[in-house]
């Protein structure tokens, strides 16, 4: 009987770990893993809630790439994105300017096509964007050395094969 109880306890423990493990890990970690495998895990504050809702509905065709997730992970990540979206939470001046630049009638999916973003990047020569170290304006951390920490200040900019950027 004792043996049975121990086995049962181990079984319950194992299933418990896997059932609740995902919740113990912070949701941000899941977001980092699932979305950050292919591109920088952009801060949710870059886009309003309505954009994230639209984005997460269409992951099978995510900018012409299949980024589909299983239903649970999708739900968990969407909750994280919407509760930290730019229209509910803007922790620094860049994020609030970005959020304020988006018309309420718009539901942008590309951060790089929002008005504030375009304005901030308009002076950068095409060759610096298209070079292999950068590829596109979606690759924040290629030039913003502290992008993953949410720091987009001018001081933290270093463009490959160019150097510091000053307006």
């Amino acid at each position: 009987m004792k043996k049975i109880l121990i086995s049962a306890a181990v079984g319950i423990l194992l299933s418990g770990v896997s059932l609740f493990g995902a919740e113990n890990k912070s949701v941000e970690k899941v977001y980092q893993k699932e979305c950050g495998s292919c591109h920088m895990a952009y801060q949710p504050q870059f886009l309003p809630q309505r954009s994230w809702n639209k984005m997460m509905k269409n992951l099978d065709n995510h900018f012409e790439v299949d980024a589909s997730l299983d239903a649970n992970d999708n739900k968990m990540i969407l909750a994280y994105l919407t509760s930290n979206a730019g229209d509910v939470k803007a922790s620094n001046k860049h994020f609030s300017k970005m959020s304020n630049s988006i018309a309420s009638s718009e539901t942008p999916l590309r951060i790089s096509q929002t008005p504030y973003f375009l304005k901030e990047h308009r002076g950068i020569p095409k060759r610096l964007i298209e070079q292999k170290e950068v590829k596109s304006l979606a690759n924040c951390s290629a030039c913003h050395t502290s992008a993953t920490q949410g720091n987009y200040s001018e001081r933290a900019i270093k463009i490959p094969n160019y150097g510091r950027w000053e307006d």
Partner: peptide, 17 residues
Amino acid sequence: MKKVLTVLALGATLGFG
């Protein structure tokens, strides 16, 4: 015993990794 196996199997099936 059957119950124990079921529980263990459940643990293994749901196991991450």
